[in-house]
Design a protein around this nucleic acid. Sequence first.
DNA 1: CTTCTTACA
DNA 2: TGTAAGAA
Length: 143
Amino acid sequence: MNTTSCEVKPSATERCGCYTISDLAKEFEVTPRALRLYEESGLLEPQRDGQKRIYSERDRVRLRLIIRGKRIGCSLAEVKELFDMYDSSPGESGQIKRLLEKLDERRQALELQRSELALSLADIEQIEQRALETLRELENKGH
DNA sequence: CTTCTTACA
DNA sequence: TGTAAGAA
């Protein structure tokens, strides 16, 4: 029975807190390439089954954090710095302070970008208004 | 077919 | 990061 559906093929890594590189890549919508890069960068350290990488639940949690960090604008090196601090001193205020620093840096960068965007938008509107005005003048002459 | 490594863009 | 190539 059941030869064409469901999970009838748990090779050895199903719901035991283990994932293949493609499992995680699919779940987080990243390519396996990215996961290998994060490993090279020292952010992930999956176990091995021969050559195959076996990711644990912890790796999965970390991957989520890596992606969040990147979204915030952290480099892989910065994420690693945070990870290393957490690994060496879990629950210490130092790591939280550094995280706060990163967030502050990011906030400043984003606010700067925001003001620059505001200037660009203002320029666009100004040019737009002048162009519209010129267009109206042209149309009046024509008529 | 899936994953791995290495190299190049 | 993507993609390609060759091996496992």
